[in-house]
């Protein structure tokens, strides 16, 4: 099971590199979406591994909140771009 989690960490490093390297704001937003979903899935995997339901609930809530915050931020960014143009 350790190998699966190490592989997930390596998969998490790819969008972190994208967020650091790419200049565009929307590329960074895509990287944020990817990282937030991957982190939540990792929490869920760990909760199953440890048989801890409390962690599972935290993982599910962080999954939904990550998506909600992404939508809010994307909406504000879109409004801002429209004003600047």
């Amino acid at each position: 099971m350790n190998i699966i989690l190490i592989a997930m960490v390596i998969a998490l490093l790819i969008p972190i590199y994208t967020a650091w390297h790419d200049e565009g704001i929307w590329q960074k937003m895509l990287a944020l979406a990817s990282i937030s979903i991957k982190a939540s899935i990792m929490i869920l995997v760990i909760s199953v591994l440890r048989d801890d339901w409390m962690l599972g609930v935290a993982g599910v809530i962080s999954l939904s909140v990550g998506n909600a915050s992404l939508m809010l931020l994307a909406h504000i960014m879109k409004r801002l771009r429209e004003q600047q143009l």
């Binding site: 967020a19 704001i25 944020l32 937030s36 982190a39 990550g66 915050s69 992404l70």
Partner: peptide
């Protein structure tokens, strides 16, 4: 701000 979101997730 976007990277702050990434930091929050991690």
């Amino acid at each position: 701000l976007v990277i702050r979101g990434v930091l929050g997730a991690v």
